[in-house]
């Protein structure tokens, strides 16, 4: 079974108006090579669901996000992404759904399990309820408790980046944290997974324990070999975050002169 797909073919699998989940966390193991393909294309009007980092910043700056579902957007070593804050302050993201991080996970779990909602305590009493007027609570059928009913997040496509995979789409992470990439894959109708390296199935468990096999092929439609595909975010242990590059990104994004950003964007893409 061969699910390999050339990086340049990725956008043939995507359409404007889709709901796209993006794996990773903040500025960690983001599928940046896949995101760059979207940035180079005409695809727009996206609903983006992510624990946001520069993926969200870049897509927001390019005006490709119609709706953003997020718990935070951060570059980790630099707390705020200026492209994201700028887009929000100028009304550049028409619709937002800001959730507590735990609610976000509950929504993904419900989506992955094909449930209409998952109950959670988080969100009660906070302005998350006011910022998401469609959110409803649910009364426990067993006692007097009342929980937030986080609606299931179903995704048309998920984009994730892992360390290794075989051609059949079994994905392996080798860093300290799996983040929620398996959940993103399960909550999506289709998943495109980029990896640092495609290896034989034998090789996957030859050098790492079987617990590192995070995403089973039944949830993966396409595998893209993209060495350095998470740059400038981290992809431990293959490489850490490129802090210098991230600083350059932030400086260009922050600049009042639009030419600074255009220059960066041209170089970056």
């Amino acid at each position: 079974m061969d699910k390999t797909l050339a990086l340049t073919e990725v956008t043939s699998q995507l359409e404007s108006g889709m709901t796209i989940g993006i794996g990773g966390w903040g500025s960690r193991r983001k599928p940046m090579a896949l995101v760059k393909e979207i940035l180079r294309s005409d695809i727009t009007d996206l609903t983006v669901v992510a624990f946001g980092g520069p993926d969200v910043g870049l897509l927001a700056r390019a005006g490709k996000i119609r709706k953003l579902v997020y718990g935070f957007v951060s570059l980790d070593s630099i707390p705020l992404d200026p492209n994201f804050t700028r887009a929000r302050e100028r009304g550049g993201i028409p619709e937002t759904s800001e959730y507590d991080e735990g609610m976000f996970v509950a929504g993904l779990r419900a989506g992955a399990n094909r449930l209409s909602f998952q109950p959670i305590r988080a969100g009660l009493g906070s302005d998350v309820m006011a910022m998401n007027p469609d959110l409803k609570t649910v009364k426990s059928p067993y006692d007097e408790e009342e929980y937030v009913a986080v609606p299931g997040l179903r995704l048309d496509v998920s984009l994730i980046h892992l360390n290794r995979a075989d051609a059949a789409g079994n994905g392996q992470y080798l860093g300290p944290d799996p983040y929620f990439d398996d959940l993103f894959a399960m909550a999506a109708d289709r998943t495109i997974m980029s990896v640092e390296q495609i290896v034989s199935t034998d090789d996957l468990t030859a050098k790492a324990p079987p617990q590192s096999l995070l995403v089973p092929r039944i949830f993966v439609n396409h595998v893209v070999e993209a060495p350095g595909g998470a740059h400038f975010t981290s992809c431990e242990p293959d490489y850490g975050r490129d802090e210098d590059f991230q600083k350059t990104y932030v400086a260009a994004a922050k600049s009042d002169a639009d030419s600074d950003w255009t220059e960066f964007e041209e170089r970056y893409l």
Partner: peptide, 17 residues
Amino acid sequence: QPKRQLIGVRGAPGNTV
């Protein structure tokens, strides 16, 4: 459309309850 966008609510709603 905030005057100043910060990081987001993160885990604060869940932590506090």
